[in-house]
Design a binder for these strands. Structure first.
Lengths: 208, 208
DNA sequence: CCGCATCCTCATGGATACTG
DNA sequence: CAGTATCCATGAGGATGCGG
């Protein structure tokens, strides 16, 4: 897939799994590791060259791994740990699809194994809540604010309300901090971030 | 997008939002409703004809609505309620993208407004748990079982373990039940489902 | 058979120019 | 500003070939 050239998690995800058939291949491998022929069977409509291409792409990008299983040279495809984490976005899309599914199968093909993903996805829909504060974010443009409420986090332009603290840093670092890929302690030690106001609130956010 | 011809929630979702640029357009509209020019600016790299095409597609499929805002004929694009529910799968993909983001922006373009989605998505990652039982599913092929544990639901081939109850029905109905689009009471009144064993367990699943 | 690679045709995407 | 029209490049899909 041609790159979007955008420093955005969604765009970069789609560069890996956004190509036609890719997520459906992942779906099959979430159900179970499979051989080439199993995938052809579980993906009615796919062309053989496309399946081969996509498996190569997904292997290169670290989503799929090709294994030689058992005796002889029996090739089997499976998800890497990172690839298996696509279960969550896929379940989420399955939940979103409900209005598209209730009209029934029409002439579409159907494999009961697909329910292995769909039913848990539809049942598993409850989330948790959190405390409440507002932090200012300065990442090189107009000031933003990060608010935590019971129903989740929200980022938007600073609306003038009192800030419990402020954080000044770069886009890559704030994402790494939010993802836990970078600790607040390390970021400060390396001078990657400046903190103002109530530092304990910032720790609540980025060092839970 | 050409149809996949599969009665699978993921496949049907992708027929609506799987085309190149579609989810990025939704991303922009999740940040805020926008005019055509705003979208061009927020989607660096998109061609004008593609944006026009995609907006039409998304409008037809009920994801986007075109509004005439304020005075004069100022066209504005916004998400429908269903379209706005794409926030969850998008946030999920953003979380998945973390390994792709920590290397930094390289030469990619960047808009701070994108953080409006990314930061809450990365912070909001905790889920809830549930009781524990096993139900058999007969939906027209080999028997399946649905297990609930503390960490979530799981569907797989029946492994011979004791079932608390069994449910016999069609694919479309089990999905509608799991999604809450059909109540257990209605399904039974209409003869769409047969229940065996401990009926109260089935109610726990499909009528919570 | 299985696991692909090649070839061919046609639909789609991308860049740019253009118009109401 | 808000899109269309045009033209070319790329990619999808189907058929088929071919070595192990």
């Amino acid at each position: 897939m041609r790159s979007y050239g955008q420093y955005c998690g969604l765009a970069r995800s789609l560069e890996v799994v956004g190509d036609r058939w890719n997520l459906l291949i992942v779906r099959q491998l979430l159900i179970a590791p499979a051989r080439y022929r199993d995938l052809i069977d579980g993906l009615p409509g796919i062309a053989t060259n496309l399946l081969a291409d996509r498996l190569r792409d997904l292997e290169v990008s670290g989503v799929v791994e090709r294994r030689l299983t058992g005796e002889g040279s029996v090739v089997e495809y499976a998800l890497t740990p990172w690839g298996a984490e696509l279960r969550l976005p896929i379940e989420s899309l399955i939940r979103w699809s409900t209005p598209l599914m209730v009209r029934g199968p029409d002439d579409d093909s159907f494999r009961p194994e697909w329910l292995t993903l769909a039913v848990p996805a539809l049942l598993d829909t409850r989330f948790e809540a959190r405390p409440s504060w507002t932090v200012g974010l300065e990442i090189g443009g107009p000031p933003f604010q990060l608010r935590a409420t019971r129903s989740g986090f929200k980022v938007g332009p600073h609306d003038g309300r009192d800030l419990d603290a402020t954080v000044r840093t770069d886009p890559a670092y704030i994402l790494a901090l939010a993802a836990g890929a970078l600790t607040l302690r390390d970021a400060r030690a390396l001078g990657l971030v400046e903190i103002g106001g109530d530092e304990s609130v910032v720790r609540t956010v980025f060092a839970p």
